Amino acid sequence: MKFRILGSVSTVANGLVKPLDGSRQRTLMAVMLINAQQVVTKDQFFAEVWGDRLPTAPDNALQAVVMRVRKVLAAEFGERFARERLVTLPDGYAMEIDPDEIDGHLFQRLTAEAKALVHQDPAAARELFAQALGLWQGPVLQGVTGGLICEGAVAQFEENRLAAAEARMQLDIPVLGYASVISELRKMVSLYPWRERLFELLMICLYETGRQAEAVQVYNYLRRRLIEEFGMEPSPNVQKCMMAILHQEPSIGQLERIC
């Protein structure tokens, strides 16, 4: 792996992680790494790096930022790498590198492989989800103030991370038991209070460890917040889970929905 975007935008050379200096360099590098092996047009760079505060000579300003990024690549990986991988094209620039050299793309590949194995080989899927989540070093594109491309990537990566975390915790249960994920689930529901699947999993785990009253309390907390904030009831799945708890149905522990 040579680049990180799951955290600060950084280079990785000889085992050393080095965040990029300068907000414009970080944003330009982030856009190219998100779109590895694809052409990013000058207009896209203008929008991401400068937004509505375009400099007087935008082409020259963009070339200056690209030159600074090339110097970083040359210092970390050598002149040849900088010359051959950060490619200048008539309409823009492209980063010609293997996507697996970028932690974000590696995360996507590992989670896709894990999802494909969930029912066939749950143990292997659990390991792949854990590997993928272990790549995260902080908020994705930390320190980047980009435009729509960066904002879209942040939203998509965060959604995929939460889905992977939910799946990994669910796969932990048959191996480690319901109690093993309760603490993590409590932390997750506090960080993501509108993620109803997290509440559902927490309710199930509390119920299966003999804490029925706490499971009902979790449901009531979620329902009260949803009604107060949005005037809506919890999702049908969460309501179904609640009824199963109240009726003390044994099938609640089957946890069939993964991914």
Rank of each mutant, 00 (worst) to 15 (best):
Gly138Val: 11
Ala74Arg: 12
Ala124Glu: 08
Ala167Leu: 02
Ala116Ser: 06
Gln38Ser: 14
Ile173Gly: 12
Lys2Gln: 08
Gly51His: 14
Phe45Glu: 02
Asp21Gln: 07
Ser251Thr: 14
Leu255Arg: 15
Thr11Arg: 11
Glu233Asp: 11
Asp91Phe: 07
Gly78Ser: 12
Ala125Met: 01
Arg26His: 11
Trp136Ser: 14
Glu228Val: 03
Glu101Val: 12
Gln212Thr: 12
Asp52Ile: 10
Ala64Asn: 12
Val218Asn: 04
Val175Thr: 06
Arg223Lys: 09
Asn220Phe: 05
Ile5Arg: 04
Gln254Tyr: 13
Leu20Arg: 08
Ala30Ser: 07
Leu198Thr: 13
Tyr178Val: 11
Ile102Phe: 02
Thr11Asn: 07
Ala30Met: 05
Arg4Lys: 08
Leu106Cys: 06
Ser251Glu: 15
Ala94Leu: 08
Leu73Asp: 05
Tyr93Cys: 06
Met1Arg: 13
Val39Tyr: 01
Phe81His: 15
Glu48Gln: 13
Pro250Gly: 12
Glu200Cys: 02
Ser251Ala: 14
Met1Trp: 05
Val65His: 01
Pro234Gln: 01
Glu159Asp: 12
Ile204Asp: 06
Val140Ser: 06
Thr56Ile: 12
Gln217Arg: 10
Asn220Cys: 07
Val66Tyr: 00
Glu48Leu: 13
Leu226Glu: 01
Ser183Glu: 15
Glu184Leu: 05
Ala163Trp: 00
Ser190Met: 05
Arg70Lys: 14
Pro99Thr: 03
Gln25Gly: 01
Gln212Asp: 03
Gln212Trp: 01
Arg225Ile: 00
Ala167Trp: 02
Leu135Gly: 06
Ala132Val: 00
Glu196Thr: 00
Arg68Phe: 05
Arg4Ala: 09
Met1Cys: 06
Met242Gln: 15
Leu246Gly: 14
Phe157Val: 13
Leu128Lys: 04
Val118Lys: 00
Gln63Asn: 12
Tyr178Arg: 09
Glu151Gln: 13
Asp52Val: 07
Gln63Pro: 03
Ile97Asn: 08
Leu54Ile: 15
Gln142Glu: 15
Ser251Ile: 12
Val31Gln: 06
Val39Ala: 03
Glu48Ile: 14
Glu84Phe: 08
Leu6Ile: 09
Gly104Ile: 01
Glu79Gly: 14
Met32Gln: 13
Phe129Met: 02
Ile227Pro: 00
Ala82Ile: 10
Asp91Ile: 08
Tyr93Ala: 09
Leu33Thr: 00
Glu84Lys: 13
Val17Ile: 05
Val238Lys: 05
Ala61Leu: 04
Phe129Leu: 02
Gln239Thr: 01
Asp52His: 09
Leu162Arg: 11
Tyr219His: 05
Val17Met: 03
Ile5Ala: 02
Pro122Met: 00
His247Val: 03
His119Phe: 00
Leu185Cys: 11
Asn35His: 09
Leu106Thr: 12
Leu20Met: 07
Tyr93Ser: 10
Thr111Lys: 09
Leu33Trp: 00
